[in-house]
Simulated assay, not measured.
Amino acid sequence: MAESIEPDLILLDINMPLMTGYEVCRRLKQMQKTRAIPVIFLTANEGLEYEEIGFNVGAVDYISKPFNTAILKARVKTHVDLYRLQSSLQQQVDEQTKEIQKLNHEITYISASIAELKSKETGQHLRRVAEFCYLFCKFLGKDEAECEKIKMAAVLHDIGKVGISDEILNKPSKLDEDEWVVMKTHSMLGYEMLADSEFEMMRLAALIALEHHERWDGEGYPYGKKGEEISLVGRICAVADVFDSLLDKRVYKEPWEEKAVKEYFEMASGTQFDPKIATLLLENFDMFIYTWKALQTGKIAL
């Protein structure tokens, strides 16, 4: 009943059938929805030892019977007023926390969009890859908070491209060997931009920026990490990044057909990509394609 009604205060006896008041109070304090509700013991049990137990299990006050009605009402009013004030303050804190989270999201997207100044397709690519990373996390059974954190971190996976020259970044033909060496530095540049942050999400973004071009077989860059030496988020982003890149039109290539993209991941599973993540993509390929198209048309907000 307390979970359903969520009263402003509970008056509780100690001597009761089936369960003592102490046990009731202890259980109330263990439940998320009722732990903050103030409990006053109202009982015939007198003595400091009874009061001490009551406070230890979480009560805010202890009143012995027989009680004075006026005093009881005054003490109830005091605790109800305090509870309502605390609830109001908590609501304000929750609202401000949501605003800060929204602001953090906006700053992250704005930071990622800086790359769009360098490459016309990068800004939208960053957001789509983030959405695909979110889907992979969901399929892997991660909770909502973890999925959202990885999604926001993945937005910044290509932020290092701001340090690559326009001539290389937007070259309409294949890069030569020297240009390719420069292009590959974007993973380290992104890592260096983010790694020293005090914020966990930014450090996660640094790891993704560093590892999203590593390969399952150890033939990737910058360090040639292999298998599970690569972080899970790096392996997830590697699949999401290539999936979007193949489907998208770039200055140096036309978009691939869906069938060709699927065949590529079937071929590269276990070599370029973590086979578990690649399998998740292949098993849910239609959903990923639908999501890609919905993001393109604006049916899903970026």
Rank of each mutant, 00 (worst) to 15 (best):
S4V: 04
S4M: 12
L12D: 00
T20S: 14
L28K: 04
L28T: 04
K29A: 10
M31G: 03
Q32Y: 05
K33D: 10
K33H: 09
F41P: 00
V57G: 00
L72Q: 01
L72D: 01
R84S: 03
L85F: 04
L85P: 00
S87Q: 08
S87I: 03
L89F: 06
L89Y: 06
V93M: 02
E95A: 11
E95H: 05
Q101H: 01
Q101E: 10
K102A: 12
L103I: 06
S111C: 15
I114R: 14
K118A: 12
K118G: 14
S119V: 08
E121H: 11
T122S: 06
H125C: 06
F136N: 02
D143Y: 03
C147Y: 01
A153R: 03
G160M: 15
V162S: 09
N170S: 14
K174R: 14
D178V: 14
D178M: 15
V182G: 12
M183R: 14
G190H: 05
Y191C: 11
D196N: 12
D196S: 09
D196G: 13
S197H: 09
S197K: 08
M202V: 11
A205S: 13
I208N: 09
I208H: 06
A209F: 09
A209M: 11
L210H: 07
H213S: 06
H213R: 10
R215N: 08
W216D: 03
D217L: 02
Y221L: 09
P222H: 06
G224N: 11
E229S: 12
V233W: 07
C237D: 06
D241K: 05
V242S: 03
F243L: 11
D244R: 04
S245I: 13
L246Y: 09
L247E: 07
K249V: 09
K249C: 07
P255L: 03
F265R: 10
G270Y: 06
D274F: 02
A278G: 02
L280M: 03
L280I: 02
L281A: 03
L282A: 03
E283Q: 12
M287R: 08
L302W: 07
